[in-house]
């Protein structure tokens, strides 16, 4: 089965986010008020072939832990849909 996955990588709470802080400071100077708690991260989109959803998710957790995130400072949340569903929808 082919799945499409989106990995949302964010710094752990409490780890300073210089990019997020800079964006937050810029917002009011551009006239955007009322926005706070800006955190910036990265997202990685990929397709994965696996036996079933559970196997795909296990592999994605492993690749995030070993390579795509630095677990010292980051974590990833994984969203997955079956690729066929994407095409049909």
């Amino acid at each position: 089965m082919l799945f499409h996955a989106v990995l949302d990588i964010q710094l752990h709470p409490g780890i300073a986010d210089p990019q997020g802080s800079t964006i937050e400071r810029a917002l009011p100077t551009l006239g955007f008020d009322g926005m706070s708690n800006v955190r910036s991260g990265k997202s990685i989109h990929l397709d994965i072939e696996a036996h079933d959803a559970g196997a795909a998710e296990a592999q994605l957790h492993e690749v995030c832990e070993k390579f795509l995130t630095n677990p010292v400072i980051e974590g990833a949340s994984i969203t997955m849909v079956e690729a066929a569903t994407v095409q049909a929808g």
Binding site: A16, P18, V72
Partner: peptide, 17 residues
């Protein structure tokens, strides 16, 4: 060396970018 796990911690973007 931090990525390889030989040293603790991590190196982030500079404050002030």
């Amino acid at each position: 060396l931090t990525e390889a796990g030989l040293l603790p911690g991590a190196l982030q973007k500079n404050a002030g970018l």
